[in-house]
Amino acid sequence: MIIKINGKYYKIKKIEKNPNGKYTITTENGKKYEFKNVKIFSEEELK
């Protein structure tokens, strides 16, 4: 799965839903981001 952050695309390693309704997304390079609204892309959609 792929996520778009600030115009760049990252591969997703893990998605966790937090009790506060936000999502914590861990990218393949180990960085964590927290979002309220998340749009996930499949690799097929990006081709």
Rank of each mutant, 00 (worst) to 15 (best):
1 M>P: 08
1 M>R: 06
1 M>H: 08
1 M>D: 06
1 M>W: 14
2 I>P: 01
2 I>Q: 08
2 I>F: 15
2 I>R: 07
2 I>A: 08
3 I>E: 00
3 I>Y: 03
3 I>K: 01
3 I>P: 00
3 I>S: 00
3 I>F: 05
3 I>W: 03
3 I>C: 09
4 K>R: 11
4 K>W: 08
4 K>M: 13
4 K>L: 15
4 K>H: 11
4 K>A: 12
4 K>D: 07
5 I>Q: 01
5 I>P: 00
5 I>F: 06
5 I>V: 13
6 N>F: 12
6 N>E: 13
6 N>Q: 11
7 G>C: 05
7 G>T: 04
7 G>E: 04
7 G>F: 02
7 G>Q: 08
8 K>I: 12
8 K>Q: 12
8 K>H: 13
8 K>A: 08
8 K>N: 08
9 Y>E: 05
9 Y>H: 06
9 Y>P: 06
9 Y>G: 03
10 Y>C: 02
10 Y>M: 12
10 Y>V: 13
10 Y>I: 12
10 Y>Q: 08
10 Y>S: 03
10 Y>H: 11
11 K>Y: 11
11 K>L: 08
11 K>W: 07
11 K>D: 03
11 K>H: 09
11 K>F: 08
11 K>A: 09
12 I>C: 04
12 I>Y: 02
12 I>E: 00
12 I>H: 00
12 I>A: 04
12 I>T: 02
12 I>V: 14
13 K>P: 01
13 K>T: 10
13 K>Y: 14
13 K>A: 14
14 K>M: 13
14 K>V: 09
14 K>C: 13
14 K>L: 13
14 K>A: 12
14 K>R: 13
14 K>S: 14
14 K>E: 11
15 I>L: 11
15 I>G: 00
15 I>P: 00
15 I>V: 09
15 I>K: 01
15 I>E: 00
15 I>D: 00
16 E>N: 05
16 E>F: 10
16 E>D: 08
16 E>T: 11
16 E>R: 05
17 K>D: 02
17 K>V: 12
17 K>C: 15
17 K>S: 07
18 N>E: 07
18 N>C: 09
18 N>R: 09
19 P>G: 09
19 P>Q: 12
19 P>K: 10
19 P>F: 08
19 P>S: 14
19 P>L: 11
19 P>H: 09
19 P>V: 12
20 N>K: 07
20 N>E: 10
20 N>W: 04
20 N>Y: 07
20 N>S: 09
20 N>F: 05
21 G>N: 04
21 G>D: 04
21 G>M: 02
21 G>K: 02
21 G>Y: 01
21 G>Q: 03
22 K>Q: 08
22 K>F: 12
22 K>N: 11
22 K>P: 04
22 K>T: 14
22 K>D: 09
22 K>H: 14
22 K>A: 11
23 Y>R: 00
23 Y>I: 06
23 Y>S: 02
23 Y>C: 08
23 Y>W: 14
23 Y>L: 09
23 Y>D: 01
23 Y>F: 12
24 T>N: 07
24 T>A: 07
24 T>C: 07
24 T>W: 09
24 T>L: 14
24 T>D: 05
25 I>M: 02
25 I>Q: 00
25 I>S: 00
25 I>W: 01
25 I>Y: 03
25 I>F: 04
25 I>P: 00
25 I>G: 00
26 T>K: 02
26 T>G: 00
26 T>Q: 05
26 T>P: 00
26 T>W: 14
26 T>H: 09
26 T>V: 11
26 T>L: 09
26 T>C: 03
27 T>S: 04
27 T>W: 04
27 T>N: 02
27 T>R: 01
27 T>C: 14
27 T>D: 06
27 T>G: 05
28 E>W: 15
28 E>V: 12
28 E>S: 14
28 E>G: 07
28 E>H: 12
28 E>M: 14
28 E>F: 14
28 E>N: 11
28 E>D: 08
29 N>R: 06
29 N>V: 03
29 N>T: 12
29 N>P: 02
30 G>D: 09
30 G>T: 00
30 G>F: 01
30 G>K: 01
30 G>C: 04
30 G>E: 04
30 G>W: 01
30 G>V: 00
30 G>N: 07
31 K>Q: 13
31 K>D: 10
31 K>C: 15
31 K>M: 13
31 K>A: 12
31 K>G: 11
31 K>R: 11
32 K>W: 06
32 K>C: 08
32 K>F: 05
32 K>T: 15
32 K>R: 13
32 K>E: 09
32 K>G: 02
32 K>I: 13
33 Y>M: 07
33 Y>F: 13
33 Y>L: 07
33 Y>H: 07
33 Y>T: 02
33 Y>S: 01
34 E>F: 12
34 E>S: 13
34 E>N: 05
34 E>G: 02
34 E>R: 06
34 E>H: 11
34 E>C: 09
34 E>V: 13
34 E>A: 05
34 E>T: 13
34 E>L: 09
34 E>W: 09
35 F>W: 05
35 F>N: 02
36 K>Q: 11
36 K>E: 14
36 K>V: 13
36 K>L: 13
36 K>T: 15
36 K>S: 12
37 N>M: 08
37 N>R: 08
37 N>S: 11
37 N>G: 05
37 N>W: 15
37 N>F: 15
37 N>T: 13
37 N>K: 08
38 V>I: 14
38 V>G: 07
38 V>E: 04
38 V>T: 03
38 V>R: 03
38 V>M: 05
38 V>F: 05
38 V>L: 10
39 K>T: 15
39 K>Y: 15
39 K>D: 15
39 K>C: 15
39 K>N: 11
39 K>S: 11
39 K>A: 13
40 I>R: 02
40 I>K: 04
40 I>A: 05
40 I>V: 07
40 I>G: 06
40 I>T: 05
40 I>C: 06
40 I>F: 09
40 I>N: 06
40 I>Y: 10
41 F>P: 11
41 F>K: 03
41 F>T: 06
41 F>M: 10
42 S>Y: 15
42 S>C: 09
42 S>K: 06
43 E>Y: 04
43 E>C: 13
43 E>F: 02
43 E>V: 03
43 E>P: 05
43 E>R: 01
43 E>W: 03
43 E>L: 03
44 E>L: 04
44 E>V: 03
44 E>G: 04
44 E>D: 12
44 E>P: 02
44 E>I: 02
45 E>Q: 05
45 E>C: 12
45 E>T: 03
45 E>Y: 04
45 E>K: 01
45 E>A: 06
46 L>N: 09
46 L>K: 03
46 L>Q: 06
47 K>A: 14
47 K>G: 15
47 K>H: 14
47 K>Q: 15
47 K>V: 15
47 K>I: 15
47 K>D: 13
47 K>E: 14
